[in-house]
Simulated assay, not measured.
Amino acid sequence: MPRLRSPLLTAAAALAVLGSLAACDGDKSKSAAMADSGDPLAQYRANPKYKAFMAGEKMSGYVFASPETQAMQDDDFENPGMLAVQDGEEEWSKVEGAAGKSCASCHQDAAKSMKGVAVSYPKFEPKRGKLANIEHRINLCRTEHMKAPELKWESKPLLGLTAYVEHQSRGLPISVKVDGPAAPFFEEGKKFYYTRRGQMDIACAQCHEQNPGMNIGVENLSQGQSNGYPTYRLKWQSFGSLHRRFEGCNQEVRAEPYPRGSDEYTNLELYVAWRGNGLKSEAPSVRR
């Protein structure tokens, strides 16, 4: 979601800005003028896929990134997220806990055992009685099989393991299931997505479903897809989880955020992942 910097910018004013930008969408002369003025989305607006996207085509946040950011993500030597993958590879074989086991003790070669796993999460976890994402699943393995303590959310070891597991599915399509026991949690995530919140009175859908491709303030609105997470975000100058991004979105509309790893954010994660079903996993991505 966008950062609305001025305290004088109300929700109505913010939506008016979005509406005026949307009205300019089909005007080629204005698009050309924006290109001349250095509009960061000029190259995107000139893409013939733009109109198809506005009609509902799914597109990764990669599409909205600058060529420099895209190049950084594409080169594994330049992609700072790969450092987290390296951290995770080390954690994978680290023996911890009373059981004297590591992740590799059970799962062996992650390139084989973890391929295709991450793109199916979040999913219903019977032992939790609710949804689990990759971070939850890692901690469940630690407590049940390694007899080791849970890793703290957003800690270097958990981010690393999450990145390492996600990386094994890079290039595979997101494929989450929202039926069966996952259905009620999916509905809760959907409800969250469409609920206005905070002092700005803005819902996720208003930015990422109704106005993607538009600018508001200094922010470029994307579809809010999750196929690149965890990600190295240039704004953060660090690697972070999807729940950290959700937290930031809530703060930016001046709403009280939920804890990372909460049921609310995990349910939302399933709904957002479902919106991107079919998009290829890019983890670890680089985002603005």
Rank of each mutant, 00 (worst) to 15 (best):
S238Y: 06
E188Y: 00
P7M: 02
L21S: 07
S60H: 06
P48M: 09
G19M: 11
L21K: 11
A283N: 08
P173H: 08
A23N: 06
S113L: 06
S222K: 03
G19N: 15
G213I: 02
M214C: 07
K190E: 13
A99K: 13
Q168F: 01
V165C: 10
N139Q: 03
N220W: 04
D74N: 12
E135F: 13
G88S: 09
Q86K: 13
A205L: 08
M72E: 05
A52L: 08
D75N: 15
A111E: 04
D201E: 14
E91A: 08
Y121Q: 13
M72L: 14
K58H: 04
L8R: 10
P230V: 04
T69Y: 00
Q210K: 12
N79T: 06
P2Y: 02
A13M: 15
P48H: 02
A182C: 01
P67Y: 00
G261R: 08
L268V: 00
S241W: 01
L151R: 05
E282P: 03
Y164T: 09
P184I: 07
S66W: 00
G248A: 14
P126M: 02
F239V: 07
S20G: 14
F192S: 03
Y194I: 08
R142F: 07
K28R: 14
R244K: 14
E89P: 05
E68I: 01
S20Y: 14
A14L: 15
G171D: 09
L83G: 05
S262P: 09
P212H: 03
I202E: 05
D263W: 05
L268G: 00
S169T: 07
K152V: 14
Q223L: 04
A148V: 03
Q206R: 09
N47L: 12
Q223N: 08
Y232Q: 10
F246A: 09
G198I: 01
E154M: 08
T266Q: 12
A111G: 09
E219N: 15
